[in-house]
Design a protein around this nucleic acid. Structure first.
Lengths: 225, 225
DNA sequence: GTGGTTCATGTGGTCTGACCACAGTATGGT
DNA sequence: ACCATACTGTGGTCAGACCACATGAACCAC
């Protein structure tokens, strides 16, 4: 058994405090110096613990926020997941195939859910993205609205964990996406796919939505299944 | 635009180094003092960067490993994801419902994949877990093999990202699982579910496997869908 | 020669104390 | 009443020190 490092103790104490005091995003932690004194450790250890919490998207710090200020509790797991994917892809401990496959799973699930629980205003957002893609004048702009469209479907399903994962996955394949669109040359095929997905969701046809999403992703990332 | 903090620069430099030098798990980074000198920053900044990488499961440090030693590159995203879920559940920025729902998505997908690509040795592992559950003499032991069974299905699908996510999700509901088993009193119903899942996978019947998994999770976590 | 012991070296982990740039607040003058 | 100024405490960074530990080389006994 390895002895716990000091900053890990600090981590546990802060977590305990969050749970016991029922702190939620927007609340504040004491300043670094205060925490250090309360826990009888050095500021370095406190800072390392805060850095971990920041990495996990639980806390956010910025310099010089005046008295009675400290790290603010947040709920931003997005960049954690994005960084996680990017680094492990770089380390080759994860393959692009696995990432695309995971995205396939999420998008199929989301499309089915979205078809079942669609509302007029959520459909409106998807239509807006479609229109923006049609009007896009550059690959980058097209891809941006493309991402927004796919994310919209995931958010429509109403699960923050899945939506956050989807955002990270999407960011991880960003480079691939731009390359894929450029390679295909024209976007007519992609737009036809998108419209098919939208129509299926709007019609509340879950099976058709899943099929449309599956076809779309298979065509866009042919080398991963 | 907020100015980048020093340790974020260090982070970027280390990441660049990993990608450019094609480093993989098992390789080593220079020692903290060397990195500090190479990048012309203080050791504290290097340490904060390493702490971030450690949190993301990319690096692992331990004290006193002799000369020419530094942090070892790893590929352990599990605890990152587990911590992420636990903290955000504690912060109420994620609900147990969303976690269980995500698990439902992954297990359905995994079961379908597992049914399609089963092998005799992978089935053997599942059978071993089933037998261990039958022989379990305590709730804790039962739940442990229960977890192993479900994880086995996810790993069978052959996607490290999904398997890692599954491990984290499973760990997050650990407390719930023990409570659920205790509440149900006997495990006969659960075991019947497990056998039904196993049989469907062994028979290569994807649809039946999905149905069996869906029924099992719905029964185990009735208050989340 | 061989096997075990000691010891110097360098590591990660921690601490102290200092300085900086910045945001909020109070203070002062107009 | 208003605006500029100084003050205060913050997070961010740095330099330098010490500790416990793991490693490997030098050493000694046999």
């Amino acid at each position: 058994m390895r002895r716990a490092r000091t900053f890990e103790d600090v981590l546990a104490q802060i977590e305990r405090r969050i749970v016991e005091d029922g702190l939620t995003p927007g609340d504040r932690l004491p300043g670094e110096r205060h925490l250090a004194e309360q826990l009888q450790v050095s500021r370095s250890s406190v800072r390392e613990a805060l850095r971990v919490l920041e990495t996990l998207g639980v806390v956010s710090s910025q310099a010089g926020r005046g008295p009675d200020a400290g790290a603010i509790l947040t709920a931003r797991p997005d960049s954690t997941l994005t960084d996680l994917l990017r680094l492990h892809l770089g380390l080759s401990s994860l393959s692009m195939r696995e990432v695309v496959q995971t995205r396939m799973m999420i998008e199929q699930w989301s499309a089915a859910r979205a078809a079942a629980s669609r509302t007029e205003e959520s459909l409106e957002r998807l239509r807006a993205d479609l229109a923006a893609m049609d009007a896009a004048e550059s690959v980058a702009e097209f891809v941006r609205h493309d991402a927004s469209f796919h994310l919209g479907i995931a958010e429509l399903a109403g699960n923050r964990l899945i939506a956050a994962t989807m955002r990270a996955l999407r960011a991880a394949v960003e480079g691939y996406a731009i390359e894929a669109v450029t390679r295909l040359g024209d976007t007519a095929g992609l737009m036809a796919d998108h419209r098919r997905i939208y129509e299926a969701i709007a019609a509340g046809d879950g099976d058709a939505a899943v099929a449309a999403v599956t076809g779309h992703l298979t065509r866009t990332y042919p080398d991963a299944t």
